[in-house]
Design a protein around this nucleic acid. Structure first.
Lengths: 133, 133
DNA sequence: ACACTTATTTAGAATCATTATAAACTACGA
DNA sequence: TCGTAGTTTATAATGATTCTAAATAAGTGT
């Protein structure tokens, strides 16, 4: 159980009850994980017996994303997927089961990007490997 | 001006007026391009002075995708992006301008995926390089 | 060309994720 | 404790996408 109050305050976010609870659900875990907003809402209900408004869940997730505590996973789905693993890493996407699987950085060889765009710098390089049966 | 009638028939799709017009807009071009459904609808209006129902545009795009004439670009956006370039290739995504830019295969070094999932085979490997100012 | 079956198109309704609204509430510094 | 700015909330609004069911067009056999 980490103390998230400081972490939030340091990023200019007030440590409200709701945000602290969401922090626990998101970050008090051994492993990082992927989720949609709806899955997160369910997890919160399960873990805290405490309903947080859907609007707040959206607000908080977006605030955390902006601060770099979460990131969106670029994938075509009707729902947006987020990842608590904010390090640069890659994914398998199982097309048949519609499931995302993290790849370790050591699972993918180095990637060299040879082209440059003037005035732009590379923020991230992510690989999506689609799998089928 | 290619003849798309055969192409459609060969894939089990009836060559209707609407589908042929959409083919012209999508494939009668020097270069491949990216589009959303709304952009495509606009392009059709501009090029053919002929309104095609939005439902038909959706149906057709999905049919073409299933047949492999189009593919979705995995990116987090409120609208789905499609690409007329169906070869395996990579993208820059300019975060500031929210614009996609194709990368040539020669712009990216070879990518080795070292991990395997039992019973699954790799369908595609795509890199998304996010750019910022 | 005709009749018949099946695919396709269409407008409009329905769905569903996400965002906006605006009123009530809360954190926090003075 | 007060005041203010930030948050939460229920609910409404938005907007992309899908569904529906009726009208139309294409393909097939005669």
């Amino acid at each position: 159980m980490t103390n998230y109050t400081e972490k939030l305050r340091n990023s200019g976010l007030r440590p409200t009850k709701q945000r602290l609870q969401i922090c626990e659900v998101l970050f008090d875990t051994e492993k990082t994980f992927h989720f949609t907003i709806n899955e997160l809402e369910q997890k919160i209900k399960d873990k805290t017996n405490n309903k947080i408004s859907l609007a707040t869940v959206y607000n908080t997730v977006h605030a955390f994303e902006k601060k770099g505590y979460l990131k969106q996973i670029p994938i075509n789905s009707d729902q947006t997927y987020f990842d608590t693993n904010v390090t640069d890493h890659h994914h398998f996407y199982d097309l048949n089961e519609e499931k995302l699987i993290d790849l370790e950085n050591s699972d993918v060889g180095p990637i060299s990007i040879k082209r440059k765009i003037n005035g732009k710098k590379i923020k991230s390089v992510e690989v999506l490997v689609k799998l089928e049966d």
